[in-house]
């Protein structure tokens, strides 16, 4: 009996809760608020939820309408339109970093002038890149390497064989290579990239992920053999600057603009996104209000591989994981905040 009555009571309350869907937002009611999650009947609960959701949607639309109207009115009256809201993102709420490069920092420029990449970037030496793999290499590895060869001008592939990497470094030094790239594959999937600056440049170890080869990209283009333009974006800290310059030193410093080929390294939250595009400026005839004009529009076509890199270590000197000195290693104790980035 009692049990049944109780149940009945509960039902009543549920109904109340449903009715009070909106009033509970106003907070005018004094009684204990029953949240929809407290309703035990799934059907009813779903209904309440749907109702709430719908109301929220309408409210949002109203808000947007009002905002647009205000903006329009301001434009008509010739006033300043209200400022656009900027959403908070992880990037723009990033933790303040004292190692940020500033353009007025003399010491920074002196340091940059003295680093290992300077002869290449000053065009005293043309970059020459040797690409090799880890010991075992198959399927996607060679395909990726063949695409890397088409991306980086003046690069050659050598079979790894059973040589020590330190021996290969010696060999490449003798042959005047300026950098050495080792593609590491695991389970037939490239998963790491080791870039070694030669003769005494640093060694960067990247984790490689999300590799998409050219043939898997829809509407991909085929790159030409022109020297590409290079876009390095968001390498803002001292470490980021160094890594960015490292990438820069892989490519010839005089792009062939006729080729209209761009290679992008875009850093976002310490992940470096690699993209390779061809672009074209298309002149489209437009008819706007009786005036025939030509509108120039840039179109992009992606070609070449697409992948993401994440810096694991940056080592001082050439490859020597045991004895070498690290300029930067990631340690778990450094991950104190998701808004703290190093590049």
């Amino acid at each position: 009996m009692g049990y049944k009555r109780k149940k009945g009571d509960g039902d009543d309350e549920e109904m109340d809760g449903e009715d009070r869907g909106r009033p509970s937002f106003n907070g005018s009611e004094k009684r204990n608020v029953i949240l929809p999650s407290m309703i035990k009947n799934k059907d009813k609960r779903a209904k309440v939820y749907a109702k709430q959701k719908h109301e929220k949607k309408i409210e949002k639309q109203k808000k947007i309408k009002a905002r647009d109207a205000a903006e329009k009115r301001a434009l008509e009256l010739g006033e300043e339109p209200p400022q656009k809201m900027i959403p908070n993102t992880i990037e723009n709420t990033r933790e303040a970093d004292e190692t940020m490069c500033r353009p007025d920092d003399e010491e920074l420029f002196a340091d940059i002038d003295a680093d290992e990449f300077n002869p290449v970037l000053r065009q005293e030496i043309t970059p020459k890149v040797l690409i090799t793999t880890c010991r075992f290499n198959s399927t996607r590895g060679p395909a990726f390497i063949s695409e890397l060869l088409s991306v980086i001008p003046n690069s050659t592939y050598h079979k790894r064989g059973t040589y020590d990497l330190k021996k290969i470094v010696e060999y490449a030094k003798k042959k005047d290579f300026t950098s050495l790239i080792v593609v590491h594959t695991n389970r037939r999937e490239p998963d790491a990239l080791l870039i070694i600056g030669l003769p005494n440049g640093p060694t960067a170890h990247f984790k490689l992920s999300n590799l998409v080869l050219r043939k898997d990209i829809k509407n991909h283009g085929n790159p030409t053999s022109h020297e590409p333009e290079l876009i390095l974006k968001n390498f803002s800290t001292r470490l980021g600057n160094r890594v960015g310059r490292f990438f820069q030193s892989l490519f010839p410093q005089e792009p062939n603009f006729r080729g209209r080929r761009v290679v992008t390294f875009h850093n976002q939250r310490d992940f470096i996104f690699f993209r390779h595009h061809r672009y074209i400026f298309e002149a489209k005839e437009t008819k706007t209000k009786g005036k025939d004009g030509e509108k120039v529009k840039a179109r992009l076509q992606e070609c070449g591989p697409r992948f993401t890199l994440k810096l694991v270590t940056l080592q001082h000197g050439t490859f020597d994981p045991r004895g070498g000195e690290f300029e930067w290693v990631h340690k778990p104790e450094m991950d104190t905040s998701r808004r703290r980035f190093f590049l």
Partner: peptide, 8 residues
């Protein structure tokens, strides 16, 4: 000594 130290 843990100090978020990252270089040699």
């Amino acid at each position: 000594f843990l100090g978020k130290c990252s270089g040699s």
